[in-house]
Design a protein around this nucleic acid. Structure first.
Length: 817
DNA sequence: AGCCCTGTCCTTTTT
DNA sequence: GGACAGGGCT
């Protein structure tokens, strides 16, 4: 080795991991100085570059593991990064202190400097649910029409403002005026006050408070500049204004910022992401080195060509030309089906084909032999994914997969930590930790039922706000409106919605008097005593035991045990899982920090299961076989996206389509239906415009629209017979389902298990053996849409159709011979 | 207090 | 098809 080489370069030359990179990737990894922008197309090894660069920084001794700030958007991404660095450099190398999501890193910083934002370092992080409940109270107090301005919508608006780093004072007047009769800013300000009093902040605040601290305390910022000379950012195209400001401030020190992203994969505009951030990086950071990664290692030629042509329809791109040395492979399949069920059927069949094909090939291959039985089966299901636009589209697939016994796993599906029982358990723990946590208090005061419902709660609220505040903040109050730090007494701009006495405190007060009926008073006393006892207990036992004790003594477990609804069992299991999860943490605090922020539990994974995911959650992942159902106008592209954001919205939808196609390694299969149930109503829908935008040369279009070919005989009906009361889900009852039963006139369960399906001819034939024309069988008619059989008399069916919300009874429905 | 019924509005996408 | 809120009833 050349002894004249600087040490860092000697290390580079020797590093084995560099040999695995192509020239562009290597250029990106070795650009260790100054601002760097890596434009990485889909499947070009973006993560590899990022992790290798990080490893390289450490391996060459340029940086210590605590001197690199590496930010990602999702917990999954940061976990993966950690693992991969470890993989490159060996065990222990993953201990990078400042590696995490924007939010988790911010939380870490804010805990250190909480007092500068008027918080205690033990502040709680509210999730969306808490946020909405809080806003609801404030809206109520402000006397605003709750129908017109829902808490949910207001939460969305406040989030949007926070994404743009706007504190109440900064919100443009015109914009605020359009909201809540001009009271939006007042509510926003009141909300911030309440958060401070609750010693809490929401997701947006994590960043905003830190930005504010950096701006007002140059000494603190300078300290971070010194500590964190290297900054790396993943998915830069998804940064919003707040995140951008946050980064700018931190990067001012060393100017050594390396961002990786792809403007074509910016799909979080609705969350405030500004593609513009990546488009103007070179202007923001003069002298930035730009590296383009254009060689795709993931997909075959046809898939890549189809995706590239599609994304070409967008304007204002930085532009890349992706290429691959892979063979063209299968063409992208586009298929039309009759309706959502048909689509699920088609995809289910495809997966079964794929699986049996692989299994056969595997067992006849050279590997087959004596030890074949001993070896775990090669994964097959997990090579397939179904990617949908919106979560509700998953249900059809889940039902179908259950029926076919295809194992599946919902990625990022109904979140463990968002389940009611888990949140209830957390509320107990939070309340034990901090008696001031009013949101937690409200959540569980009557869970399980203690006879402390609305009336009691109302009195508690009154008690809490009526009396002269006795609350004295430990720290001076920080005013979001003016940015001033105010000493007690309380600033005047606190609205009626703001209370200075916690509900716990109010409860202690109220049980002394006779404001409550005796029954409620006793119950409340008991509840308070329980809490105090648990707080005592906490000093003696560890947090896992504490959780068990609380769940048991509160009667929560018992409530679930007595609950006869089918979900009760699962909920009990969830609680067990929760207690188990707590064991992975040393303290209650550590655990709560995790659940508040990471909101993600490692569900073991690794099973051989088909992946079911939204397109958003699929970013960064890949599969050999990818299904892209629901490509219909109004669904995808989403009507709402286009209504709200016009061409910009459409282009983001198109990027989403691009992300979808480029997830596929070997085969991408797009499908669309002619009929789709939206809000429970049947609607005719048109194929997505994106389908027309695909290049013919790379696509096989097999339209089966009219699946079932509509009319058989004069009735023009397609039948799907369901066996009443049969197995699958037959115990399931929902309000809507019950209502449907009532309408049908038969009090019996119809069940949901398709016994047979097919065209009229088939059904009619089996009707002779009087098997399938059972009351409750589902029927589709070209003219009248879906209905259910109400009565059967020989060849005549009485069918109740539901169309456009109206009930229609067609007598003498003649079957086709 | 709490259950049940009925009417309304809805559904993107996530830290 | 379902969450949720409000009203009426037990």
């Amino acid at each position: 080795m050349d002894p004249n080489l600087p040490i860092s370069q000697r290390a580079s030359a020797a590093a084995p991991y560099l040999a695995k990179l192509n020239p562009e990737q290597r250029a990106a990894v070795e650009a260790l100085d100054g601002p760097v922008l890596v434009l990485a197309g889909a499947g070009t090894g973006k993560t590899r570059v990022l992790t290798t660069r990080l490893a390289h920084l450490l391996a060459t001794g340029r940086a210590k593991s605590w001197e690199v700030l590496a930010v990602t958007f999702t917990n999954k991404a940061s976990r993966e990064m950690r693992e991969r660095v470890e993989h490159l450099l060996g065990p222990g190398a993953g201990g990078i202190r400042w590696l995490g999501t924007f939010h988790s890193v911010s939380a870490l910083m804010l805990r250190k400097h909480a007092e500068l934002a008027g918080l205690k370092s033990s502040f709680t992080i509210l999730d969306t649910d808490d946020q909405i409940r809080l806003l609801k109270q404030i809206i109520e107090a402000e006397g605003i029409d709750e129908k017109r301005w829902t808490a949910r919508a207001l939460a969305g608006q406040i989030d949007a403002w926070k994404n743009r780093a706007l504190i109440p004072r900064d919100v443009p007047k015109g914009e605020a005026h359009a909201w809540g009769d001009g009271k939006a800013i007042a509510i926003y300000a009141a909300y911030q006050e309440r958060l401070k009093i609750l010693n809490a902040c929401d997701f947006g605040d994590l960043l905003l408070h830190v930005i504010d601290i950096f701006k007002t305390r140059p000494d603190v910022l300078a300290d971070y500049h010194r500590r964190l000379p290297y900054i790396m950012v993943d998915e830069y195209q998804d940064t919003n204004v707040a995140q951008y400001l946050w980064l700018r401030l931190l990067a001012q020190g060393s100017n050594n910022l390396c961002v990786v992203g792809d403007d074509d994969q910016s799909i979080y505009g609705w969350r405030g992401a500004e593609v513009d951030n990546i488009l103007r990086f070179e202007r923001d950071f003069p002298g930035a080195k730009v590296v383009r990664l254009e060689r795709n290692y993931r997909s075959t030629g046809n898939i890549l060509a189809a995706a590239s042509k599609l994304i070409d329809h967008n304007t204002g791109r930085l532009g890349k030309t992706l290429w691959t040395e892979d063979e063209p492979g299968d063409r992208v399949k586009v298929r039309g089906v009759w309706d959502g069920e048909g689509e699920a059927r088609l995809i289910g069949d495809d997966i079964e084909h794929w699986v049996s094909e692989r299994r056969e090939r595997g067992s006849s291959g050279p590997q087959a032999g004596a030890d074949a039985g001993l070896k775990a089966r090669a994964p097959v299901y997990s090579q397939c994914a179904v990617l949908v636009r919106a979560a509700w589209q998953m249900r059809a697939f889940e039902e179908r997969f259950l029926m076919l016994r295809i194992p599946y796993k919902v990625i990022g599906g109904p979140r463990f930590f968002e389940r009611a029982e888990v949140r209830d358990a957390h509320a107990y723990l939070r309340l034990i930790r901090s008696p001031d946590d009013d949101l937690a208090f409200e959540r569980i005061i009557n869970q399980p039922k203690r006879g402390l419902a609305d009336a009691t709660l109302k009195k508690l609220h009154a008690e809490a706000s009526a009396r002269t505040p006795t609350f004295k903040p430990d720290e001076p109050l920080f005013d979001m409106l003016t940015g001033e730090v105010t000493e007690y007494p309380v600033p005047e701009n606190i609205t009626a919605s703001t209370r200075f006495r916690s509900l716990t405190e109010a409860a202690r007060e109220i049980v002394k008097g006779d404001a409550l009926p005796l029954k409620a008073r006793t119950a409340l006393k008991g509840f308070l005593a329980d809490l105090d006892r648990w707080r005592e207990k906490r000093k003696q036992v560890n947090h896992v035991e504490l959780a068990e004790i609380v769940l048991d003594e509160s009667g929560y477990t018992e409530m679930l045990k007595n609950d006869k609804s089918p979900t009760a069992q699962t909920r009990l299991e969830n609680l067990k899982e929760l207690v188990q999860a707590m064991g992975h943490f040393d303290t209650l605090e550590a655990y709560l920090e995790h659940v508040e922020l990471v909101l993600d539990i490692d569900t073991g994974g690794g099973g051989d299961e088909v992946h079911l995911s939204t397109l958003h959650a699929a970013k960064g992942l890949e599969w050999p076989l990818v299904f892209l159902p629901g490509w219909e106008e109004t669904v995808f592209p989403s009507q709402r996206s286009m209504d709200e954001n016009g061409v910009k919205g459409l282009e983001e939808e198109r990027r989403l389509a691009y992300v979808g196609i480029t997830r596929a390694r070997q085969s991408a299969r797009i499908s669309f239906a002619a009929n789709r149930q939206i809000y429970g109503r049947w609607q005719n829908v048109l194929p997505s415009r994106f389908i027309d935008e695909l290049p013919e040369a790379n696509v096989d279009a097999i339209s089966e629209t009219g699946y079932g070919r509509g009319g058989v005989g004069e009735s023009g009906a397609r039948f799907e017979a369901y066996a009443p009361g049969a197995g699958f889900n037959s115990g399931y009852e929902s309000p809507g389902w019950k209502r449907a039963q009532d309408r049908m006139g038969e009090g019996k369960s119809f069940g949901r298990a398709p016994a047979i399906e097919g065209e009229a001819r088939l059904v009619a034939k089996s009707a002779d053996s009087d098997a399938k024309f059972a009351v409750g069988a589902r029927i589709f008619h070209d003219k009248f849409g879906y209905g259910r059989i109400r009565a059967v008399e020989g060849n005549k069916l009485t069918v109740a159709f539901e169309k456009a919300g109206e009930k229609k009874v067609i007598d003498s429905f003649v079957k086709a011979a």
